Simulated assay, not measured.
Amino acid sequence: MALLARTPKQIGTIVRRVRRKQGLTQAALGEKSGLRQETISLIENGNPATRLETLLAVLAALDLEFQIAPRARSAASIEEIF
């Protein structure tokens, strides 16, 4: 299942959805990733200041990986995306 995220908020939504699907609380995911529950909450709420290292730890704890791919073409202009 490929999940697409282009904003911190979308990343947070995916993390929350996968965490809940795996039956984990924010505290349990925090323990599993070596982070505080508060940090998991910030990520799930789309905090744009989340460090890449922190995000990668959360993704690894959820057995997810980070991939970079060319942006799919759409009718939206760059101004509409940002």
Rank of each mutant, 00 (worst) to 15 (best):
V15I: 14
R51F: 00
V15M: 12
Q26T: 00
E53T: 12
R73P: 00
R20D: 07
E31Q: 05
T7E: 02
R71E: 05
V58T: 05
I81V: 06
T7M: 03
N47V: 00
E38Y: 06
P48I: 00
A5L: 01
E44S: 11
S74M: 03
A5E: 08
Q22H: 13
N45T: 08
I14G: 11
G30D: 03
A28C: 01
A49G: 01
A2K: 13
Q22G: 01
A5S: 05
F82K: 14
E38V: 12
V58G: 12
M1E: 09
N47E: 03
M1S: 14
I40R: 15
L55F: 08
G30M: 01
Q67R: 07
E44T: 09
A61K: 08
F66V: 09
R51W: 02
A61T: 02
I78T: 14
L59D: 07
R73M: 01
D63C: 02
G12T: 07
K32W: 05
A28M: 11
S74C: 03
L29G: 13
S33C: 03
I81W: 06
R6G: 03
E44C: 05
A75K: 14
Q22V: 01
N47S: 09
E31C: 03
A5D: 12
G12Q: 05
G46H: 12
A49H: 06
L29V: 07
R6E: 09
G46E: 04
I68H: 05
E31F: 02
R20A: 06
E80N: 10
R71C: 01
N47Q: 09
A57F: 07
V18Y: 10
G30W: 03
R73N: 02
G12L: 07
Q22K: 14
E38G: 13
L35A: 11
G23V: 04
